[in-house]
Each structure stands twice: as structure tokens, then as C-alpha cells.
Nucleic acid binder design. Structure first.
Length: 311
DNA sequence: AGCACA
């Protein structure tokens, strides 16, 4: 079967210059997490030999990229939709939409640090944004951080007298549709519902993915090669799930559990990278058997035991 | 808002 779903679509505008996703070996997803947070990027190690450890009066002036570049947005995307997509992720600071008539729309989302940016990237990359246009967004680190954030020590653009005195480094960029409010998010239905009468026989082309990004919420477990699948309908079968998940690269095994109450399933992949791809792309996917919301995917708490290994 | 199997 075709096993090339997770590849993002080709660039569509000249402004798109983000690099392709890294191979599994080098992906930050596969990086072994250490504590609380899920995705530890190749965190800048204490490069200095160990001498000047605690002498710094200010936090490390990391120039790390902490801005995400979002492409694949439909032309009629609203700034609030982008905001709603990212606002719930920890470390979110602001987002900025550029929607032009001629070129495809693109957006930037600024986070407090690269780690939180990468977490949001992993969770949103590849997710369906507009079902009618059947377009899914792809998210990468931007080439550079959005300006008008806290300027670095020498910023010649200081000429402006407006003192950004927002707490916690939240500043505004003054550009057109910059969104950084923290209160409301009620654009819940800017997307039409899932294609109700559609026969979702083949998810690749016709299955409704997450129908509303604004209600998308990140999950908490650290990355695991096994996924936990919940919110399945009573009529959902293991066969149906296997048909969906087995098309993804790195798929190994699916086990459904239907005995105790709500049916759930566990899907094992080769590695964190493969499971992450499947999670991102199938989050909220509507199956034939689904009723309303579609299935909910999380990293499992522990990996599926693989006793048998054929060779 | 629910995480088993070895």
C-alpha cells in the first residue's frame, strides 16, 4: 500500500523556504526526553567547559529560533483561527498572519523558547485545516524570529519611543493582524463541519481529519512509539482502525480493547518519529463509526510489549 | 479525559 502519507506537500509559494522534516534519526521528536516536558530539542549543552556556570546575571540570551512558520493555510484564513490553533500550547506568545491575494497565506507563531515552539510544531504539523480544500498545514521553525519581540542587546531599531512594557516579554509587533490576546477564543466554527455524508472509506483522500483546529488541545504524555486511541465509537472495529493506521510509515501493530466500557486501542510504531507523524495527522480523524468528535490520539503511557519478534 | 499486553 501507499506509505507516503506523511510527506508534506511541496512548497507552494516563493516565500516558503522552510527545510524539510529531518529524518527519524535526527529528529527532535526522537530525542530522549529527560523530565517534565515532552520534546527536548538538541538543547544547547553547556558548551563552555564548565567554567562560567553560574556567573551569569541574566538568563542565557538564547538566539534560538522560537518562531514557527505555518504554511498551507487557505486563502480565507483568519488571524483568529491561527491564534486559536496555537493559543493553548504552553509558551505561546503571539501569532502573525500574512494573507495576501496573490500568494498563499502564511503565518508565524512566536513562543517563549524553542522547546515550546517545537512542541507546538510537532502537534500541529500536518493537521488538516480546511476540509473542503483538503489542505493540511505544515509547520516548521521559521528562518528567523519575528522582530518586535524583545530586541536583543544592540538593536538599532530602538528609535521608537514606545516602551513595550508588557509583562513576561509579551510584546506586540504593531503589524497588521498580530494576535496576542489572552482572553477569548470563540471562533469555533469558522470551519464547516466534517463532510457528513461523505463515505470515509479511504482516509487518505476522504477521511475527515480534525474538523476544527480551534478546539484542538495538546496532550501531555511524553513521546512514545505506541499511541493511545480513545473516543472511539462502540461500533468501531479493530479492522477499521487497522485499515487507517497501517498505512502510516513505521506501523507495527494495533491492539484494540473493547471489554471494559469505552473502546480504546493501542497502536505501536517503530519509533517516536513515526508515532508522532501518525498522531499529528490522525488527530480527530472521523471514521465511519465515529459519531461526532472523531478519535483522540495520545502517546501511550507505556510502550506496547513486543514479545514476538519474527526474523 | 478513559492506558493493556508481556
Amino acid at each position: 500500500m501507499a506509505a507516503s502519507y506523511y510527506h508534506p506537500p511541496p512548497p507552494h509559494s516563493s516565500s516558503y523556504a522552510a527545510p524539510p522534516p529531518p529524518p527519524p534519526g535526527t529528529s527532535p521528536y526522537a530525542y530522549r526526553h529527560q523530565h517534565h516536558h515532552a520534546y527536548l530539542p538538541p538543547a544547547p549543552p553547556p558548551a563552555y567547559g564548565g567554567y562560567f556556570d553560574l556567573a551569569e546575571p541574566h538568563p542565557p540570551p538564547r538566539d534560538e529560533l522560537r518562531t514557527l512558520f505555518i504554511a498551507g493555510l487557505p486563502a480565507d484564513v483568519k488571524a483568529r483561527e491561527v491564534y486559536n490553533l496555537f493559543r493553548d500550547f504552553p509558551g505561546y506568545v503571539s501569532s502573525h498572519l500574512r494573507a495576501g491575494k496573490s500568494a498563499q497565506a502564511y503565518a508565524f507563531a512566536v513562543f517563549e523558547d524553542q522547546q515550546s515552539a517545537l512542541a507546538a510544531m510537532s502537534a500541529t504539523n500536518g493537521m488538516a485545516f480546511d476540509l473542503e480544500k483538503n489542505c493540511s498545514i505544515h509547520v516548521d521553525l521559521a528562518k528567523s524570529n519575528s522582530r518586535s519581540k524583545r530586541p536583543r542587546t544592540d538593536d538599532f531599531s530602538r528609535s521608537s519611543e514606545k516602551k513595550a512594557r508588557n509583562a513576561r516579554g509579551i510584546s506586540d509587533s504593531g503589524a497588521g493582524s498580530n494576535i496576542h490576546m489572552s482572553g477569548m477564543g470563540n471562533s469555533s466554527h469558522s470551519l464547516n463541519g466534517y463532510p457528513s455524508a461523505q463515505s470515509c472509506t479511504n482516509f487518505g483522500a476522504s477521511t475527515a481529519f480534525s474538523k476544527d483546529p480551534s478546539i484542538f488541545a495538546p496532550q501531555n504524555n511524553p513521546p512514545c512509539p505506541t499511541l493511545f486511541v480513545a473516543n472511539l465509537a462502540e461500533t468501531c472495529s479493530e479492522r477499521e482502525l487497522t485499515d487507517v493506521f497501517s498505512s502510516f510509515a513505521g506501523f507495527m501493530k494495533l491492539k484494540m480493547q473493547n471489554k471494559s466500557g469505552a473502546p480504546v486501542a493501542f497502536v505501536d510504531f517503530e519509533d517516536d518519529y513515526s508515532s508522532t507523524e501518525a498522531l499529528n495527522r490522525l488527530q480527530g480523524a472521523i471514521l465511519h463509526s465515529s459519531t461526532a468528535e472523531g478519535m483522540r490520539l495520545e502517546y501511550a503511557k507505556s510502550r506496547m510489549g513486543m514479545r514476538k519478534k519474527r526474523s
